[in-house]
Write a protein that binds this DNA or RNA. Structure first.
Lengths: 142, 142
DNA sequence: GTTGACTCTGACATCGACGTGAGGGTTTAG
DNA sequence: CTAAACCCTCACGTCGATGTCAGAGTCAAC
């Protein structure tokens, strides 16, 4: 199939698919005309790429791990010990990111739940004209 | 105090402090020379900004909510109902981001824990020469 | 063969919170 | 008074995964 069909089947833009190839993540055959020719296998590869991108891995890392991936019933599996180290590191990174988000959310929750001190209740600029409290509007009139 | 002192007291770079002002988050007085003059209050404001930034809010959102914030014993509180709506929306956004990360981490965990199919054990390019499995090197010789 | 849909390769634009450096005034300690 | 330290305003650079546009070639149906 050509790039448009792959784009439709994966929901990934053609631009992104070309970008993946540029980054060494995807290597379609080429017709004599230069058109990219993809196989059904590439559909799975693209899904793997999206999965890893969603996991927060960069294309460079994905380029490292992708050759070591093998599909098993829709499930990616790591075929190399070195890869496991990388994946574990990424996993830790994700965990750390989650902890940061959790802390941030708790902060927000605390703000939301905090009682408003009575002496400040009427002194604040709570109108819909937000942002004018500083004197200079962030968006000047066009 | 001047910007260097505020930077030291908050641990925020001078560049960032000027950026916050540019975004309407901070409005120090100006000396005749043009030097910014900050008060102790600004120290708290900067802390609030960092808190909200750490929570994943953008400067535009912070510019909206900051005029409605009040400090109470080191704890930020929302003084406007409208603000609560915004904060709740941000909270939901953070929760969604956490869920994405959780899903991504579970995928990584599954990959890590997945058994390596025997028939694929020796067929993959697990050497340090990564990226050559596709036939075309991502960086062509110049 | 012709039209219209599809594809190609560049290459510049985007977003966000700053980093960094140039070129030039200001403050302050000695 | 002078030198060092501090501060000012531009303004461009960063990172990463795309969006978008231009100009040109290709494929499929009629």
């Amino acid at each position: 199939m050509r790039i448009g069909a792959l784009s439709q089947r994966t929901g990934v833009s053609e631009r992104a698919l070309r970008y993946y190839e540029e980054q060494g993540l995807l290597s379609p055959l080429r017709r004599p005309s230069g058109y990219r020719e993809y196989t059904d296998e590439h559909v799975h590869t693209v899904r793997s790429i999206r999965t890893l991108l969603a996991a927060g891995l960069g294309t460079a890392t994905i380029a490292d791990v992708l050759p070591c991936m093998v599909e098993e019933g829709g499930q990616l599996a790591a075929a190399c010990p070195d890869l496991l180290v990388d994946l574990a590191r990424e996993r830790d990174r994700i965990t750390a990111a989650m902890n940061e988000l959790r802390a941030a959310r708790e902060m927000l929750d605390a703000i939301i739940a905090a009682p408003v001190p009575p002496e400040a209740a009427g002194t604040l600029d709570c109108d819909e004209a937000v942002g004018t409290a500083f004197g200079a509007p962030p968006v000047p009139s066009p």
